[in-house]
Nucleic acid binder design. Structure first.
Lengths: 359, 359
DNA sequence: GTGAAAGCGCTAACAT
DNA sequence: ATGTTAGCGCTTTCAC
């Protein structure tokens, strides 16, 4: 295909290693004018390094494998973006493989990635601990980003669900609420349990009784949030505020309150969790605790690179804070609300919008 | 790091080429028991092929570059998923690079990918034609998936916006509407113009007058759809139905109708375009023409692979049909509505949900 | 049907 | 500061 270092060597009359030392960016001492000549020749010949060949020699490919269940899952793209941005800053690339919650696909995906080879592995939103033996003798660093299983594990980066849930309760209490209902995720989900614990902890701290009648369980989907909210509202002392453990259930809860002829937030305040895209555009816009998706990806990639480059030791689980996005559904005064973009890409799309018409 | 073919050769007492012929899946004639022995040895030693070495030799890396502006843009993940699924079926991988609408980043991204090297390039949601000289002497096949610029170009896969818009109008006419308003995207967007043309074409076919007072322009965002709808409603003969050129503007239009004290769909029917995630969960759920995102990705990857593997010639622009998702905002009878999942991953998540509690 | 030899493009030892 | 030599792991001639 292309121009090789050999060609550049011939063109300059220098030897191959000399050319390599210039072009590979090594810090080997090279005469200034030699360096110039090599660079000029490489430029004019249109030389491109062949990373496969370099990797064969150095045993480092500047590539990491990213294993996801499905890149279309809501949190995955921003996590991946965080990873990619950190990798790109180090001239690394990430190879994404979807394994669809399928252990067989996962097995072959890991094998393929190790074959390629990659320098490290990132498991995104993993619901189980990947069996160590899959990685086998290949001693590549691995990280779990937003692991969904409960067992704490080294080299993992997770949202601080406990503290974040506490902060949601703190916010509602600060708005004057004392009867706060909880719509929990399914009890067999670790994240649901952790969010509940944060809810209990903050409730205790504020001296609020924890009334089992004010806890309902959903399955993360909108419909279950609707049903759960109806259930919470049909009690002797219905809550004045509801914390739903994700935005879909929060949306269902909003619909339930509205269908009951009540207003959100005037009659019932509602706070969600996740900061999904729709939270900002539904009516009322949902106040919610954001998943620190981008940041989790960035941090995981950062730590992974440290282990690849500097052979840093494995680290304890890292917890990342979310951000409370105060919108309309909680009744906080408008001045407290975050200013935000409807879509993450809005500004960039505007740039496009303003360019000249094409064709 | 690992076990090489050399090791397998030694273990079996066979020569390196023989081992290679077995393990590389070539169709070279090999004695049955020789093949067995090699496979057994490879298995027990835990041999993994080194794709970097193979690529160096064969000049084919089974990798294609995927250049996107931002993987977090709404359509990109499903397009990428379509690409990846087709690639995976051929044992190819896709290397995704974000270039953030930045020509400099794009330039270096292409250079990096060619360096890697990759066997082909996929440009996803590109707003400009990538300069040919960037690809330079590297004669790699390229495809554009969902190009946003107007100039038709070979090797591109796009949604059939014209025909899809016609079908939206057909649907509204079939529901009895004769005064249909249009909320167009910005006129300097090719996709906006094409959707308008489909709207005009179908209107003509149905003998509907095209009244400029029933056309308003937005900027793709919710707020602009709100304003545009208010404008359309404040006319002498307001439309009984509105076609919004994307779902965000359709949502804004719904809010405008509701704020005017009217009902969607009873007073005004509204149809959107794109089938964004939120369209299925807002109230009323938005009837919309889907972007055939997954399919575009799949088809583009398929055609790209054909050009890589079989050196097929470049093809004319391929147009993919969307699907009309009949929900609540258009007033079609409930029986006509599609049954659907709230989220693409719902079924798979349910599987997770039903597993035993972990830890 | 199998083996010997060469080489893909690059970098790391080791000379000088 | 530069050059010589060797070799990463693999596939592909070409012999036999």
């Amino acid at each position: 295909m292309g121009v090789t270092m050999q060609d550049v060597a011939r063109a300059t009359g220098l030897s191959l290693p000399t050319v390599s030392r210039v072009l590979s960016g090594s810090n080997y001492p090279i005469a200034a004018d030699t360096r110039q000549r090599v660079q000029a020749a490489a430029e004019s010949l249109g030389y491109r390094p062949n990373l496969a060949a370099r990797g064969l020699r150095t045993k480092r490919t500047s590539t990491v494998g990213i294993i996801v269940d499905d890149i279309m899952s809501a949190f995955v793209p921003p996590i991946v973006r965080g990873i990619q941005d950190r990798l790109a800053a180090a001239d690394y690339s990430g190879l994404i493989v979807n394994v669809d919650w399928n252990p067989d696909l996962e097995r072959t995906a890991i094998a393929d990635l190790l074959s390629r080879p990659v320098d490290g592995l990132l498991f995104v939103e993993y619901s189980h601990r990947a069996p160590d033996e899959l990685l086998g003798n290949a001693e590549k660093p691995c990280f779990f980003v937003h692991r969904l299983f409960g067992t704490p594990i080294r080299n993992s980066v997770v949202p601080d669900d406990f503290r974040c849930s506490e902060r949601v309760v703190d916010h509602l209490v600060s708005l004057g609420h004392r009867r706060i209902g909880l719509i929990s995720g399914p009890a067999n989900w670790h994240s649901a349990r952790t969010r509940n614990e944060g809810f209990f902890s903050a409730s205790n701290r504020h001296g609020l009784a924890i009334d089992p009648a004010r806890i309902a369980y959903g399955d993360w989907e909108t419909k279950s949030g609707y049903d759960a909210a109806l259930h919470l509202l049909n009690t002797a002392a219905p809550p004045t505020a509801i914390f739903a453990a994700n935005d879909l259930m929060a949306l269902g809860a909003i619909y339930a309150v509205q269908d009951a002829g009540l207003s959100v937030p005037n009659d019932v305040a509602i706070v969600g969790y996740d900061n999904r895209d729709f939270a900002a555009i539904v009516r009322p816009a949902i106040t919610t605790m954001s998943m620190p998706v981008y940041e989790m990806g960035r941090v995981a990639a950062d730590l992974l690179l440290a282990q690849i480059d500097e052979r840093s030791p494995a680290v304890d689980e890292v917890r990342i804070q979310g951000e409370l996005m105060i919108r309309e559904s909680c009744g906080a005064p408008p001045t407290a609300r975050c200013t935000e973009r409807t879509e993450s890409v809005t500004t960039l799309r505007r740039l496009l919008l303003n360019r000249e018409p094409d064709n």
